[in-house]
Design a protein around this nucleic acid. Structure first.
Lengths: 206, 206
DNA sequence: GCATCAAGTTTCCTAAAGGAACATATTGTT
DNA sequence: AACAATATGTTCCTTTAGGAAACTTGATGC
């Protein structure tokens, strides 16, 4: 008696493959011919008797004529429903970098889609900053106090006044400076691709 | 004499994993602990000596803290690189709903990962609001002016003062009210997963 | 210098992937 | 009903995935 695999993760690749194949109107043989995988292996995959390797996952997606993401939980891991985190003014976690003093907000929540911060911009000149920073994701900035200069790789510098907001792609090099004599303060939200989803991956031990 | 695999498809999973791991600052052992895969297997994967199975691909992505699509080349949702949008104070697009007056910011950019808004909360009583709203995504709120009451499905109401911020999962029913006598004003960022990267999957019909 | 510890690799072995051929549904045709 | 037809499942077997532990390699003490 063979044991089923992979279903214990709640993924059910087999059902997904069977569904995609059925919707496309292919037989197992056809998918086998189109993918280069043997019919027997495809049958086993559909019955969750076999966990295909990386190479065969790529071939299988080709054979089914679907995007690879269709073979993985397209319903992205649903974040925990119903979380809430409150940070009172000034009560965040402070981090001091070369150019910024950051107050990380709601940092008790992990695996967030966004990271909100307040920042004091201590740099007033571009040279204080060094090179522009670039990383995956997108950012929103609202000026809370003072004037802010936004430097970006592909645009001329622009100065923001209190209440102004800006949205930009952070894969583009960027830096924020105080434009006035005082340090400016901003509200800053970053959306990162790869939120640090620290999740245990415990095999269910019976 | 071992042969390399998978590279013949031009995918180079190993290099990709190595890059992702390096960027995240993990050691092989750390990824092993986070993923539940043995260090030796991860080493082999990085050197293209082993093609991981479906289950281990999922675990590996978890261990690296990245989305599965990061491990496949084809499925790169291309975010436009280098966009920037500026909205001066008061110059957003105004939308008036039953309980809010919203100023949509940076609305000239489409396919954003986040939607920033300013909102005036015109409702002062829960009954003015009706039922709680719930939708996919996560939200950040910063109180700019006045006092705000946040009603949520699973928590007791809480009152926020100026400068306070809150993060919550918007799949949980929620509503925002002005707690003081004046209408409160907030900065509001919503992250929705609208990343509908749907691709044609045309079977070559004979 | 040697000892030590950490990061990564290799070896050895077992358990699982996956192909070829066979076995069993399932469906249509007379 | 029997008989083809094809579609799917199973068995047997070889190759490969992947874990445990031994082995490099490199950096840091003493």
């Amino acid at each position: 008696m063979d044991m089923k695999i992979a279903e214990d993760q709640g993924i059910d690749l087999g059902g997904r493959v069977k569904g995609l194949r059925g919707r496309a109107g292919f037989t197992i043989k056809e998918v086998a011919a189109r993918s280069g995988i043997s019919p027997s292996a495809i049958s086993k995959i559909e019955n969750n008797l076999l966990s295909p390797t990386y190479d065969n996952i790529i071939r299988l997606a080709q054979g089914l004529g679907v995007d690879i993401s269709e073979l993985f939980s397209s319903t992205r891991k649903q974040a925990p429903h119903g979380r809430r985190s409150l940070t009172r003014a000034g009560q965040g976690d402070y981090i001091r970098t070369r150019a910024y003093t950051l107050e990380m907000l709601c940092s008790d929540l992990t695996a967030k889609r966004m990271q909100p911060m307040k920042a004091r911009l201590r740099a007033h000149e571009a040279r204080e900053f060094g090179t522009l920073v670039a990383h995956a994701g997108e950012e929103v900035v609202l000026v809370l106090r003072g004037q802010v200069t936004l430097l970006t790789e592909f645009y001329a510098p622009v100065t923001l006044e209190e209440g102004d907001s800006v949205y930009f792609d952070s894969t583009m090099g960027h830096a924020l400076l105080s434009a006035g004599s005082e340090d400016a303060e901003i509200f800053w939200v970053c959306a990162a691709d790869q939120s640090l989803t620290f999740e245990e991956a415990p095999p269910d031990s019976p």
